[in-house]
Each structure stands twice: as structure tokens, then as C-alpha cells.
Design a binder for these strands. Structure first.
Length: 414
RNA sequence: GGAGAGGUCGCAUAGCUGGUCUAGUGCGCACGCCUGGAAAGUGUGUAAACCGCAAGGUUUCGAGGGUUCGAAUCCCUCCCUCUCCGCCA
């Protein structure tokens, strides 16, 4: 959420920002109009209340005084009702304002305008036609798509045998690697309340994307970002930075993506992810984004998977983010790079919503900066390994760093 | 799920026969005195949000309603925590 004061003082920048994100700036005008009306009533009401408080002398009030206080109180009551209505409306509008973009976010329309920042590794040259991961996974009896569908529906998959073991190995490998570089491991609830979803920005705007337990007013998390960032909601944190790594399953309805990536593990309603979350001092957050992104990249490098890093342009950056890098891994069967991690600096946007603050050097309380990034999406990593490590006969070589976990170096048909 | 107790400015607590609460006290923390240095002792200060250039003002005592001229204090609803019982991985 943008601070009301910031919106007032930087109206044009906010308007420009909404345009760059290809949003409609009308909501800004609606907000501004309401805000100035609100402030008039606020001032008046506070003066009335100050009067009332002055009237509060010791002893019993005379009938005359009582009469005065009564009418004053009536005014205050009706004004308070007006104020409450204003506040609710203002919040409702402000909650759907997107975050301000970083100055170095390129202006662009969509994913085609995302610049490539770096490329690592060289896609392997196959002397045969590489198979897709779903075909490989099924033939090696690692993935069972049909039974996943039987159990739950489309976009649900069952992992078996070496598939299940590799998924587990990847989770452990990622958690251990990040633990070693200063991220504290946390294990959180996978179902959270509305306040948590609002704190990180999933609500109110993206309700459609969430699985909801109506009876209990709880939501299944779409990413570990939600529980981990909300760990310190409504708190003034004592030390910064704090860095966490967390494994969770993620649940997404994928509304509106019918027909996209219907085959394979790429787009699932339930998938595993190891997430990095950083609580940072404002002045350090951009440097933190670089190091967090490198942490995510290190996993791909240890797995020896070719990838590239792109920066999202203004039209493609997520609602809550101020600056985002995506990591994309090479998929031989598709002949292209596909997203496997997204690393974002949210600036103070989430911290303001979630009321996570710290005391700066001047002892002033101010919102912190939050960041997070996938380190990595496990299902997509498994898919990328199958495709990049396949052999002509359909066997899969096991990446070196996973051999200790799996105790084998090649996966083949029985 | 049943019975009871409780949710107060970091932590712990007082306040709960409505105005003096602009929320007291202890611990912790910060700064100072004392000390060769430290501990102890001692003094002062220490919640947040909003409006305002400032002076200052307003709000917040789990959340939301209500009674009242006025509520941390009374009433209602809800949420959560703890103890005991029941059930259960």
C-alpha cells in the first residue's frame, strides 16, 4: 500500500506509475477527491473533540453544561460515522494501487519487452530429438498424470518412485544450500487467514487465484511468501536484516490460464517451492535483491542447468513489486527458456500493509523493506532436470549434487 | 466439542463501585551521576497511528457493536490464549 501522504505529495508520479503498468489512473482521481473531502471533515471533527475534552471538568456538570455537551456529542457522532465511511472507501481504493516501480525498471508493454540481464551455461546440443519431461517422467514411472487427475482433477500430478525421491531430494538440497549461506529455515502453516493474505497483497485484488476454506475463512497459501513475510506482521522488529528459507507446497487456482501449459509439471494447482524471504533495512534492499537473486541462481548453477536472468519491464512487474528479476531455465523439448524463479524487492509496500517496522538510526519507527524469491520452484526444477539430463535411450543422468541424496547416478526403466 | 480463567503502551502487571487514566508500577532498554573499570546504587527518559511548517490536536486498553453528555471501566456479539475434561494423528 502506498502511504496516503506519499500519494498526496507525489500525485503525478503515482499517476505515471499506474500508466506505466498499463493500469487505469481514474482510481487515483477518485481517491484524491475523497481524500480532500475526508480531511476537511477530519479537521472539523478533531476540533469538536478537543472542545469536548476541554469540557471535562471535575465534579458534576450543571444542567446547562450537560445540554451543551449533548449537542456537541451529537455532532461528533455523526461526523465520526462520516469519517469511518470515508476511511473505508479510501482504503478500498488505495489497496488496489500498485506499488511504485524502481527507477531502473524499463518501461515496456509485456514480457516481450523484458531485457535479458545475463545468460549462464550453454544449452546442450542433442544428437537426437529431446523428449518432453512429461513423456520421460511417465515412461520412467516417475510421474503419473492420469491418476493425479483421477484423484483431484486436471493440473494435479502424482509423483512415484524416483520422481517422488527426486522431488524430496531437491527440497532438501535447496534448503541445505540456502541454510549454509545464512538463511534461517522456517516451517509454517500452509493455511492462513485473511489478514495474512492482505498483508502481502494477494487480497483483495487476487481473490480469484486462491483456494479458500469458506467454513473457516482461511486460505491455502499460493507461496511461502505469505506466511513467512507475515511472521512479523504488526511488529516492530529488533534487528535487520532477517533472512529466511522455507519449503512449502503452493496452491493456485490458475484461473484464466485454461489451455496454457496443460501438459506436464509446468503449471500445477499444487506444487512445491523453496522460497527465500528477506526483511531488510530500506537502504540495503536493492543490494539484497542482487544477493537474493544470486542465491537462487546458485541452485541452478550447482545443478548445471543453463539459465538466463531477465528483468521484468513496467508492464510485466507484479502488483506488489517495485523491481523484479525472473530466472528462466532452458527446456530442450520446447527450445526455450521458462520461468523457474521470480525475485522481487517489494520496497515498503508489503511492510506498510502488514505493519512491519523497525527503528532506524534516528530511533524513528519506519516500515522495513521486504523481498522474496523462489529458490527454486521444485516441480519445474525436476522437469528441467529430466529434459536436460536425458539420454537417447530415455535414461536420466542424475546431476552430481543430487547423487548423494539419491544414491544413484542414473535413472532408467526397470 | 464441554467447563472455567483471561486478553491493558517490548515483557510482567495495576486499574474494572464510569469523569482525577493526558493509562500507574516493576523489569527491560537509553542517557547521565557514582566507579580505576564494572556490578550494585541513583537520577532522567522510554507505546504506536493520524492531522499540522510548528505550537499543538485527535485516536488506540483483543475486534466489532451498544448504553451514556462522557467507557480500559457497564451491556451484547465475535476472535484468540491458558487450565481441566472429552475426542484424535
Amino acid at each position: 500500500m502506498l502511504a496516503a501522504k506519499f500519494i498526496r505529495e507525489n500525485t503525478e508520479a503515482v499517476r505515471q506509475n499506474i500508466r506505466h503498468r498499463r493500469g487505469d489512473a481514474k482510481i487515483l482521481d477518485a481517491w484524491l477527491e475523497k481524500d480532500s473531502a475526508y480531511r476537511k471533515v477530519l479537521l472539523e471533527t478533531e476540533q469538536l473533540k478537543a472542545q469536548r475534552n476541554l469540557f471535562k471538568p471535575q465534579g458534576k456538570p450543571t444542567p446547562e453544561q450537560l445540554e451543551n455537551m449533548k449537542s456537541l456529542s451529537d455532532f461528533i457522532k455523526s461526523n465520526d460515522a462520516v469519517l469511518a465511511a470515508f476511511e473505508e472507501e479510501l482504503d478500498e481504493i488505495a489497496l488496489v494501487f500498485p506499488n511504485m516501480l524502481s527507477a531502473d525498471t524499463p518501461v515496456g508493454k509485456d514480457e516481450n519487452d523484458n531485457p535479458i540481464i545475463k545468460t549462464w551455461g550453454t544449452p546442450r546440443v542433442f544428437e537426437f530429438t529431446p523428449k518432453s519431461h512429461d513423456e520421460l517422467g511417465e515412461s520412467l514411472q516417475m510421474l503419473d498424470f492420469e491418476r493425479g487427475t483421477k484423484l483431484s482433477g486436471s493440473r494435479f500430478t502424482v509423483l512415484k518412485g524416483w520422481g517422488a525421491k527426486m522431488e524430496r531430494a531437491l527440497i532438501n538440497f535447496m534448503l541445505e544450500t540456502h541454510s549454509e549461506t545464512g538463511y534461517e529455515e522456517v516451517w509454517t502453516p500452509f493455511i492462513v487467514n485473511k489478514e495474512s493474505m492482505t498483508g502481502t497483497g494477494q487480497l483483495p485484488k487476487f481473490e480469484e487465484e486462491l483456494y479458500r476454506c469458506e467454513r473457516d475463512e482461511l486460505y491455502l497459501i499460493p507461496t511461502a511468501e505469505v506466511p513467512v513475510t507475515n511472521l512479523y506482521r504488526d511488529e516492530i522488529v529488533p534487528t535487520l536484516p532477517m533472512k529466511f528459507v522455507s519449503y512449502t507446497p503452493c496452491f493456485r487456482r490458475e484461473a484464466g490460464s485454461y489451455g496454457k501449459d496443460t501438459a506436464g509439471l509446468i503449471r500445477q494447482h499444487q506444487f512445491n517451492k523453496v522460497e527465500l524471504v528477506v526483511y531488510s533495512k530500506p537502504e540495503d534492499s536493492m543490494a539484497m535483491l542482487e544477493s537474493l537473486t544470486q542465491s537462487a541462481e546458485s541452485i541452478l548453477e550447482k545443478l548445471e542447468l543453463p539459465y538466463r536472468r531477465i528483468q521484468l519491464c513496467s508492464g510485466d512487474v507484479g502488483f506488489s513489486s517495485c523491481k523484479t528479476y525472473d530466472l528462466e531455465v532452458w527446456f530442450p523439448s520446447q527450445g526455450r527458456y521458462r520461468e523457474i524463479s521470480s525475485c522481487s524487492n517489494f520496497w515498503d509496500f508489503q511492510a506498510r500493509r502488514a505493519k512491519i517496522r523497525y527503528r532506524n538510526d534516528e530511533k524513528q519507527v519506519e516500515p522495513i523493506h521486504t523481498l522474496n524469491g523462489s529458490g527454486l520452484a521444485v516441480g519445474r526444477t525436476l522437469a528441467a532436470i529430466l529434459e536436460n539430463y536425458q539420454e537417447r535411450d530415455g535414461h536420466i543422468r542424475v546431476p552430481k549434487v543430487l547423487q548423494d541424496y539419491l544414491k544413484i547416478d542414473i535413472i532408467k526403466k526397470d
